[in-house]
Write a protein that binds this DNA or RNA. Structure first.
Length: 112
DNA sequence: GTTGTGACGGGTC
DNA sequence: CGACCCGCCACAA
C-alpha cells in the first residue's frame, strides 16, 4: 500500500473537502483560501493524491468557472463524466456544457 | 539545493 | 468569445 504519508497541508485540504455537504460544491480557490493559502493548484494536487477517497468527496470540488475540473474531464462523446453524474445524483444542477451554478450550489465553510 | 510541473485563477491580448 | 501569460504554493525527481 502507499508508504507515502499525507502532509499537513494535504490534511487541511481533505479535512475541509470532507465536510462539504451533499448537494453543494466548493471551488479550488475557495478551499485554498479556507485553509489559509493561495495555492489553488496545490489544492488540486492534494486531491489528485486523495488517499481518503471516497471519504473525501473530491468530486464536490470544482473550478471557479463552474466547470467540474480535470478529475474526469476527458469525456468525449460517448463517455460521460462520471463525477458529473454523481453531482447530479446529489442534487447539483449542471448545464449542458457541464457547468455548475456556483451562485446556488457554491458552498463555503462560513455557512456551515 | 535546484528545476519543473500541476485536478487553478485572474488578467490581458 | 477564445487563446495566452503570469503568478500562486506545494511536491516529486
Amino acid at each position: 500500500m502507499s508508504g507515502r504519508v499525507p502532509t499537513a497541508f494535504e490534511m487541511r485540504v481533505y479535512d475541509y473537502v470532507r465536510m462539504i455537504p451533499r448537494g453543494r460544491v466548493a471551488t479550488y480557490g475557495n478551499v485554498a483560501r479556507a485553509i489559509g493559502t493561495k495555492a489553488t493548484r496545490a489544492v488540486g494536487m492534494a486531491l489528485s493524491r486523495n488517499p481518503y477517497a471516497p471519504e473525501v468527496p473530491c468530486h464536490r470540488v470544482v473550478r471557479a468557472d463552474g466547470d467540474v475540473g480535470g478529475f474526469n474531464g476527458h469525456a468525449t462523446g460517448s463517455e460521460p463524466k462520471r463525477k458529473v453524474k454523481i453531482l447530479l445524483s446529489e442534487g447539483v444542477e449542471i448545464g449542458a456544457t457541464g457547468k455548475i451554478d456556483l451562485s446556488r450550489f457554491g458552498w463555503v465553510a462560513d455557512q456551515a
